[in-house]
Design a protein around this nucleic acid. Sequence first.
DNA 1: CATAATTCATACTAAACTAATAGGAAAATC
DNA 2: GATTTTCCTATTAGTTTAGTATGAATTATG
Lengths: 130, 130
Amino acid sequence: MVKISQKTRYAVRALMRLKTYGPDGATLRQISNAENIPTKFLEQIFSALVKANILESKRGIEGGYKLKKDLREISLYDVMKAVKDDVKVARCFDFAQNECPLMPMCKAELFWRKIQERTMKVFTETMLEE
Amino acid sequence: MVKISQKTRYAVRALMRLKTYGPDGATLRQISNAENIPTKFLEQIFSALVKANILESKRGIEGGYKLKKDLREISLYDVMKAVKDDVKVARCFDFAQNECPLMPMCKAELFWRKIQERTMKVFTETMLEE
DNA sequence: CATAATTCATACTAAACTAATAGGAAAATC
DNA sequence: GATTTTCCTATTAGTTTAGTATGAATTATG
């Protein structure tokens, strides 16, 4: 099953939800309640999104999270990368680099390269809001 | 990690390898040796490819497998479907159908639909040989 | 017909990965 | 100083994937 991880899916929903709170943002708890996402799990996700410069955080009472970018500027790939949901759909993983017995460039490798490129293109070009 | 299953990856390599044996095809053992794929695992894969009408098989001594279609006519999606490596990259799995609290059509759902469509397009349009 | 080589069918095990939980530290406001 | 929030990181539980195992059915050949 080729699928995008729950982490990424939660992240996307949470970001979209966060936007509805306007420029002042919201707390983790507000988002996790609104979207029915396990609070502690979302915490890890938001932490990663902060590191990726997608969110801005402030601690303490009156703290919370704000979007640091417009949804139009955030691609699915950005989110996946932030939460470490790698997109290695199809590179040639069957042999360690430079050890493929069919090197320098077997047909399968060429094929997987194409798939990888085309899939990446979809993920990098599809923005959370278009 | 978004990736295509080992089953599908083996299948692609095996099909490409099979082609090199010409119109008479080859046995499971030949392919599994040549590609270094666990024989019994490949057996399951080939069985699925036969059911999907991608391969033709003949039992007994002198038996083996033959391609039933040209590689140009087999898409990655065909292979994935055959080996049950579903492509549900991104439909809205977060709520059971008709139970999404954001229905009739939340922003996330729209987003995932786009991703799903675009990814499917890549997989159905990329052929094993182009 | 007996034998050997092959595909077919299905159940089981092991390994890897993902999702979720847990506990407490650090910061900010009042 | 108390409370509310984010931050950090380790552990557990659950699910999925990869691989192994066993044996039946089929077919060519001597």
